[in-house]
Design a protein around this nucleic acid. Structure first.
Lengths: 145, 145
DNA sequence: CTCCGTGCAAAAGGTTTGCACTGGT
DNA sequence: ACCAGTGCAAACCTTTTGCACGGAG
């Protein structure tokens, strides 16, 4: 058994559970992503995996990452779609994201405005924001669970 | 004095303070963005402002939003550059973002793992994550304040 | 008067799509 | 054998850049 197989196993189990076929390409992407802590872009994964899997296309890496994320095997990070969004409010506040319609709501909650920044990271922290993910009232009405 | 001028004033004051010229275009963008709560993209602002300011170009809207954000007059929302990023970790954890080099670090902090979700929003909340912004150790060393 | 800010056009990313083929299950 | 998944190429969308002109300070 190769060195990374133990690390890969939970991911593959999750794929089977979700009915995602375990193709050579999916395994290769997972094997590359699993140990990484740098939150790579699709392109970075492609650059890193590509050479090891002859014929692997960039498109496939995009599709594999997308399907894995939709199935909950991996996660997309800090991103609300492809385009940058702007907010006229500069003071500290937090956000509610609808995972279905991508709507973003501001929320005020004094309890969230006094979180302690983590220490020992060497970072000089200037601000923070909490992002809640969920389904908005409209989407819940349209497609109840 | 028109209806929105009171709303606009703090933004314009901030522009003067930061040395940003108050052009017709900047005023138009600010006037459009100021009352909005939907976190629009640059294109959405352009669609909405464009018709009112003949000759206003899309490029300018991008540049105006960028300069306003860099000056701290408005804010960019939940976005780490243009490309989507992926994380192999699906369990709850939080992030440290370097605003200079765009590096993203995972952080573990049990104190952050038990935040109360806001109530009364009608959202069905499934998860959340805290994003801290700051300057990483490397960037602090390279360009100390 | 001097630059910063702008418009236009073109390029540079990043991502998605149509279609035919192939390989998991 | 069936259908999900793939490769390729082209389209698409968002953002950036070069250059010349014009208006705010």
């Amino acid at each position: 058994m190769k060195r990374n197989d133990a690390l890969l196993e939970p991911f593959e189990a999750l794929c089977r559970e979700k009915g995602l076929a375990l193709t050579v390409q999916r395994r290769a992407v997972l094997k590359d992503l699993a140990p990484r802590k740098d939150h790579p872009t699709a392109d970075q994964v492609f650059e890193s995996v590509g050479p090891q899997v002859p014929g692997l296309s960039r498109t496939t890496v995009y599709r594999v990452l997308d399907s894995l994320a939709k199935a909950g095997v991996i996660q997309e990070v800090g991103h609300l779609g492809t385009a940058m969004r702007y907010d006229p409010r500069v003071q500290r506040h937090h956000h509610l994201l609808c995972v279905e319609c991508a709507r973003v709501l501001d929320i005020e909650d004094p309890r969230l405005d006094a979180l302690k920044a983590p220490t020992g990271t060497g970072f000089e922290i200037s601000d923070y924001s909490v992002y809640f993910k969920g389904r908005c009232p409209d989407c819940r009405k349209k497609r109840p669970r």
